[in-house]
């Protein structure tokens, strides 16, 4: 029983929000077209996903392919960002000369908002997947890179000594000591990175791509279909939540050794 109440706890706030929103929309304080009620959003969404009555017009039944298109961009850009961010981060954190030669440049590029690369991305890569992937990469790369550097720099010096005592070569040191020692920090970077990745996919799709959930969102805005705008927003939220959940699972399985380190010992 207590268990059921516990599970219900997390649903209370969304439930109240939706009820309040439904009542507010139906009260007529705002024109219904400006703030569609949740029931209407859900209806359009259902048509977008399963083509029940054609109410979402050209998008009817296209949700899955739109979602897949966005997911693929996120995944590609994110994978490139992860591989390069972790490798470069370890190199910068470990070798002083790499830090001295590369880090200033990286820190100079970092404050430039990824969105401001859109014009260049379009002229370099055209209107397709590539500019979106490039933006996703930019958004996810820096948090992953910085957290990796931090993880390497703060890894316990004594562990390095212990490994040297046991005869580790430099390559073994990096792979079997530095990388696992930095992993909690890298994982934190990955979780920040996935958030930026979704933000930038959607941004890119609104401007530079002709498919995906971000494109549907922007296109629906032109056709005054705020119900679809809202459905697209919720879709992004859910997809982002889903990918973060996957990361959390990955974290729990790779950082198994950290369990029992919470304050309450749970």
């Amino acid at each position: 029983m207590l268990h059921l109440i516990r599970r219900g706890e997390r649903l209370v706030v969304p439930f109240l929000l939706i009820i309040g929103w439904e009542i507010f929309s139906r009260s007529g304080l705002l024109p219904a077209a400006l703030l569609p009620a949740p029931s209407i959003v859900l209806h359009s969404w259902a048509d977008w996903a399963f083509a029940i009555d054609g109410s979402s017009q050209t998008y009817s039944g296209h949700w899955l392919s739109d979602a897949l298109a966005s997911c693929l961009r996120v995944l590609t850009g994110y994978a490139i960002a992860t591989a390069s961010g972790v490798l470069l981060g370890i190199a910068i954190g470990w070798w002083r000369w790499v830090e001295r030669t590369i880090e200033p440049t990286v820190q100079m590029i970092r404050p430039i908002p990824p969105v401001s690369w859109i014009p260049l991305a379009i002229i370099w890569f055209g209107i397709a997947d590539k500019p979106a992937i490039f933006l996703v990469f930019l958004g996810a790369f820096f948090p992953i890179l910085l957290n990796t550097i931090h993880g390497v720099k703060t890894s316990d010096r004594n562990l390095i000594r212990a490994a040297a005592m046991m005869g580790a070569t430099e390559q073994q040191m990096l792979r079997q000591v530095i990388f696992p020692a930095a992993l909690p920090s890298i994982m934190a970077g990955l979780r920040i990175g996935i958030g930026s990745a979704w933000m930038l996919t959607v941004t890119a799709e609104m401007v530079a791509v002709k498919s995906g959930i971000g494109y549907v969102l922007w296109d629906s805005y032109y056709f005054l279909r705020y119900d679809l705008v809202l459905a697209a927003m919720v879709s992004i939220g859910l997809l982002g939540y889903g990918t973060d959940l996957l990361l959390k699972l990955l974290m729990q399985s790779t950082l198994r050794w950290q369990r029992g380190q919470t304050v309450q010992g749970r």
Partner: peptide, 25 residues
Amino acid sequence: GMVFQQPTLMPWLTVWENIAFHLKL
């Protein structure tokens, strides 16, 4: 072989993996 002031075990390895780390290398 050095035994340090702090145990300095690799926190991501189990007891036996820590002890046999040299063999893994």
